[in-house]
Design a protein around this nucleic acid. Sequence first.
DNA 1: GTCTATACGCAGATAGAC
DNA 2: GTCTATCTGCGTATAGAC
Lengths: 223, 223
Amino acid sequence: MANTKKRSRPAGAHPEAAPDTESRILAAAREVFTRSGTAGARMQDIAREAGVNQALLHYYFRSKQQLADRVFRDAATTLFSTIPRVLPQDATLEQMVRGFVHTYIETMRRTPFLPAYIAGEAHQDPARFVAIIATVTGTDPQKGWQQVLRRFQAVIDAQVAAGAMRPMLAEHLVVNIVAMVAFPFVARGVLIGVHGMDEAAYERFLDERRDELPRFILNALRR
Amino acid sequence: MANTKKRSRPAGAHPEAAPDTESRILAAAREVFTRSGTAGARMQDIAREAGVNQALLHYYFRSKQQLADRVFRDAATTLFSTIPRVLPQDATLEQMVRGFVHTYIETMRRTPFLPAYIAGEAHQDPARFVAIIATVTGTDPQKGWQQVLRRFQAVIDAQVAAGAMRPMLAEHLVVNIVAMVAFPFVARGVLIGVHGMDEAAYERFLDERRDELPRFILNALRR
DNA sequence: GTCTATACGCAGATAGAC
DNA sequence: GTCTATCTGCGTATAGAC
């Protein structure tokens, strides 16, 4: 714990060069942990995926726990930092909804296991989740979340004042939007299984939702 | 595998009597598996929770895998059999939506870990999920799902013909509804952590949603 | 920095007494 | 049916050569 020794790096001379060992291990760990979860992941699988020996994992990250925490922290940062990014300062409610849905679906379909991984880890150890996201400086998820809520609430209130929509708490609107966008990813396994989908059908399903969801949401908000 | 020997039971004489050992083990297993997931669960924890020795778990269920499969199968059956139950044969779209939302939230808040557990297991091993739900006879989830879709589509089409709503695929409507209802449970850990909620606040949040969601959904469906 | 070999502990599973 | 004691294997972690 107290030991966080820094190793000398091979001088980041070539920013475009092939990823170094530590990066390859991290990428492999991301892959395996997001697929199997922390408890189900095996260090040997990560080593094989990275093309190195298992001992190297401990050389770079000391323990499975520390490696897992690192991956989890990175993943949480990625997932939550996406939200504020799609909300430009002077957007209308319609623009916010369309931007949110589109960006999120397109971002997540590139790493479709991420939402389920985060949800699973947060479920199995809520305290660890809270503790780890607390260490994320700069883009603190909790602060970012509050910021998103205030932004939405301001736009909602303006719309209500203009008689264009009914009053609504931003908490529920945002959770509704996130739920409809994220659910097909978080419950991907269930959906594919119950629906009898293959990969291609799942992708088409996502395409449909990317177009359908903004309609559905904006319609729900009309006065 | 081939060995599924039946043991003689202490004669189910007293249906109201204290649960027998097998039931207590099963209840404990449900508790531990839904909290920690199959990979994270420990047989010792289940034994302690059930107040018996670890060897008894193997006596009754032979292996962790078989016990886990049993718990998973029961949980999936519970979760999915709830859907058709809340959809009476001659209900209107409004009744279906209201009934669905209300029943689901009230059912799930009694076993709030169930949705996240199912989603997590299905995510980590989709093939196992498909295989296990395939063994569920009678209330086969896949058949039940198709049935729900047809029911919704029929009512939607009627509403569209009457000029009361715009055309929409039942797949997306049902996924939207399930998403908004289930998401606070599946992503419970994330939500509580990011939102900074305690248990009581989470319960109030659910209460609000139980009232808010039908409004939101029915509004979204208007022409 | 990277490898092979190995130590070590934990958790699942079995044997066998009662 | 239920227990205690024990075996076994797997997965993490370390030692130490190169």
